[in-house]
Design a protein around this nucleic acid. Structure first.
Lengths: 158, 158
DNA sequence: AGTGAAATGACCATAAT
DNA sequence: ATTATGGTCATTTCACT
């Protein structure tokens, strides 16, 4: 059972989602706490799994990854074991920066990046379509990031 | 014009994508640099926009956000101005944690969260479907996060 | 509040262009 | 010579008890 979040906890989460590398001293000042209790709350949020980690957001184009796409996958009827292994393979591909199982028409949505269209093609043709259990693969290229992956809203009441 | 990334830069990016809050001292040790040059490279990566920011990854369920979904939007033929305003409205919704313009069947993909199905319904019915210029809205709930939003691959050569 | 660690800036060394 | 890299040291600031 997890403690309910205090208003301070919520302020901490809001700040840390926008600047995950802020020092504890500056964080404390922003949320209106002294450094010491602020640090204790931060550790508690980490220990409780409310904060799952911290990540630098890297500009993919700066790394020469010019292509970003969503891949919509439909699966064949198949034994559960196949599905597990398919999903494990998917997770292993470094082109896959996120992947979700969905309810509805499409079974899996894959968020992928690649350095160019050619290597993206190689990825879908040789490494997605060939996975056993895959019935259909459709890709849509990202034209623009309207709102880049961002903060989850922190409601005032839990 | 951006400097090419050095091998040290790449190591820094790989580490920081997995632990965005690592101290500079520990980062330096991991990538095999002294603290001072390590910090200088880090700042340069930030200044050049290679690192766009740092974010605490927050467990949405800990915040009472039980529902996660992808919303696929098709737009009507319309003047460019309408589209711009539609996109601005979309960006403003706190339920929208990411949004992309796509090539293909679907024009926009919206990654959204909500506290329950009812409030998600309110969001799609009252705040998405009513946007001028929207022709079609389809939602798929996320059943599981197979691979949570993660690191972009950092190739050895740019 | 105090102590040990970290961040940060000034300055030097080396190598490649 | 200039530019880009990395290192060392001294000082300030921070983390954490």
């Amino acid at each position: 059972m997890r403690r309910p979040l205090t208003p301070s906890d919520r302020r901490i989460l809001r700040v840390l989602q926008n600047d995950g590398r802020i020092t504890n001293a500056a964080l404390a000042e922003k949320v209106g706490l002294a450094a010491s209790p602020c640090l204790r709350r931060l550790k508690a949020l980490e220990d409780d799994g409310v904060i799952e980690g911290y990540r630098a957001m890297v500009n993919r184009k700066a790394l020469g990854l010019e292509v970003e796409a969503f891949v919509f996958i439909k699966l064949e009827q198949s034994e559960p074991g196949w599905r597990t292994r398919l999903v494990e393979r998917l997770k292993g591909y470094e082109e896959v920066i996120a992947c979700y199982a969905l309810a509805g028409e499409v079974d899996l949505i894959v968020h992928a990046v690649a350095k160019d269209i050619e290597s993206f093609g190689e990825f879908t043709m040789n490494r997605l379509l060939t996975l056993p259990g895959v019935a259909d693969v459709r890709s849509s290229f990202v034209l623009s990031s309207i709102k880049p992956p961002g903060a989850v809203p922190v409601p005032d009441h839990a």
